[in-house]
């Protein structure tokens, strides 16, 4: 089970990345930050804004030493068609057909059998440092994820509404 400040539950899933199907293991990202986001399904009229949002922010995530991974329970073929439909996505979309990873990350809506909108930030040591859930009708803010990532990377205490470059406090 996922716990803040503890090891992120390990996983290995197949995913689509730049037209190729590859195996992705969380352990392979040790030493880098990871923004892990779960979303309900491909070919939805609600989700694409988020998948596209992470695509737009992807360069910035990369510049901050952070990988982006998207996960839903859709099969790989659907992921591949969806990526094509969206005009190409630079980060991997992972497929979790058994929903085991979604469940381990408390990101499964048992009622619909789909992933909920959950986002996690995992630090280079593989520890969960941030997690947020959103109602299915409300898309997440990629900008907010970037803001939190930058705040975490300061290693200092950041007050409410902190903006990059703003004052921070030495952890006591």
């Amino acid at each position: 089970m996922v716990v803040l400040g503890a090891d992120a539950p390990p996983f290995g899933l197949s995913g689509v990345h730049q037209g190729q199907v590859k195996e992705f293991r969380l352990a392979d990202y040790r030493g880098r930050w990871v923004a892990l986001f779960f979303y309900p399904e491909d070919f939805s009229f609600i989700c694409p804004t988020e998948v596209i949002g992470f695509q737009k922010g992807y360069q910035e995530f990369q510049a901050l030493g952070c990988e982006v991974l998207g996960i839903s329970s859709d099969p790989l073929e659907t992921h591949r068609a969806w990526v094509k439909e969206l005009g190409g996505i630079d980060y991997p979309l992972l497929s979790d057909p058994t929903k085991e990873v979604c469940r381990r990350y408390r990101a499964l809506d048992e009622g619909t059998g789909r992933a909920v909108r959950a986002t996690y930030i995992i630090d280079p040591e593989g520890l969960v440092q941030y997690g947020v859930f959103s109602h299915k009708n409300v898309g997440r803010s990629v900008e907010e994820t970037l803001r939190v990532l930058k705040a975490l990377q300061t290693g200092r205490q950041c007050p409410e509404g902190w903006r990059p470059g703003g004052p921070t406090v030495e952890p006591g």
């Binding site: 399904e41 070919f43 009229f45 609600i46 859709d74 659907t78 068609a81 009708n137």
Partner: peptide
Amino acid sequence: PYLAHDDLRKALEEEGLSKE
């Protein structure tokens, strides 16, 4: 509108069409 779009997509899926 996107909620209605999604509802219709699901209804069509229930009638046996693939998601895509």
